[in-house]
């Protein structure tokens, strides 16, 4: 069996009266693109924050590369690339400064790859983060997350609120990353078509509970509607009873 990159065992977490995670158990081997799907407030970001060690496990255990991310943050985080949903890069930095600053933390930083990404994303190294559009900020954050070629890339709603061009850029970068042998991607989204396009393995979550965790191929094999392959949207709807993202008006 492949080495487990992420292992959550009976993980539960509450925020006041609200149960954010309820007895979550996941064992995720290396070298796969995992798509975490759920409606807003389902617990996607909480799982990601547990994986990064930003939350302590109230009950159960979290292991990343076999290590507790709270007890050993340096050992875990130095092997992880992370793009935050909040995109909280320091506004005063320039793109060049962000790259220079971030590279200091990762011995595996690849200058050539960082420059290649910067050119591909069309970012001026002298441009201040505060002057970038939301999409450009996401691209800058992606350079910082990818250029050290992390063993585990964690993306929290990477394409939330972004235009299709930026979304294509992000997906392209993810695809290039997973093409590198042995790397793992764990990304959350409520856009099921995006997950369907990229993920090898889909995890569906609702109200803090894992409803389904299976390879995409197996899901397509086992879920059929009127004899045809069901879309992820239909699978999600059949399990949860509501769509993953709010329906457009009208």
């Amino acid at each position: 069996m492949a080495e487990l990159v992420i292992q959550l065992s009976n993980l539960s977490r509450r925020f006041g009266q609200k149960t954010a995670l309820d007895d979550v158990t996941l064992s995720l081997p290396r070298g796969v693109v995992y798509g975490l799907v759920g409606a807003n407030g389902a617990g996607k970001t909480t799982i990601i924050r547990q994986i990064l060690g930003l939350l302590r496990a109230e009950s159960g255990t979290v292991r990343v590369f076999g290590l507790d991310p709270v007890a050993e943050p340096v050992a875990v985080l130095s092997r992880v690339g992370y793009l935050s949903e909040e995109n909280d890069l320091p506004a005063w930095m320039s793109v060049g400064e962000l790259i220079r600053y971030t590279r200091a933390f990762y011995p595996t930083w690849d200058d050539g790859y960082a420059e290649e990404l910067r050119r591909a994303f069309g970012l001026d190294p002298a441009a201040r983060i505060r002057d970038l559009s939301r999409g450009q900020k996401a691209r800058a954050g992606l350079i910082a997350a990818l250029a050290h070629r992390p063993e585990l890339l964690v993306l929290d709603e990477p394409s939330s609120g972004l235009d299709p061009i930026v979304r294509r850029d992000i997906l392209g970068a993810v695809l290039r990353t997973i093409a590198l042998e042995g790397r793992t991607v764990f990304f959350s989204s409520h856009l099921l078509d995006e997950v369907e396009e990229v993920a090898d393995h889909v995890i569906m979550i609702s109200e803090g509970r894992i409803l389904l965790s299976a390879p995409l191929a197996a899901i397509r094999e086992t879920h059929r509607v009127d004899g045809r392959v069901a879309s992820l949207e239909e699978v999600f709807y059949s399990l949860v009873g509501t769509p993953a993202s709010p329906l457009p008006p009208g």
Binding site: L52, S84, E86, F105
Partner: peptide, 12 residues
């Protein structure tokens, strides 16, 4: 702590 700082591979 903002995620940008919290996810730096540095000890507290």
């Amino acid at each position: 702590v903002r995620p940008f700082t919290a996810t730096r591979p540095l000890s507290s």
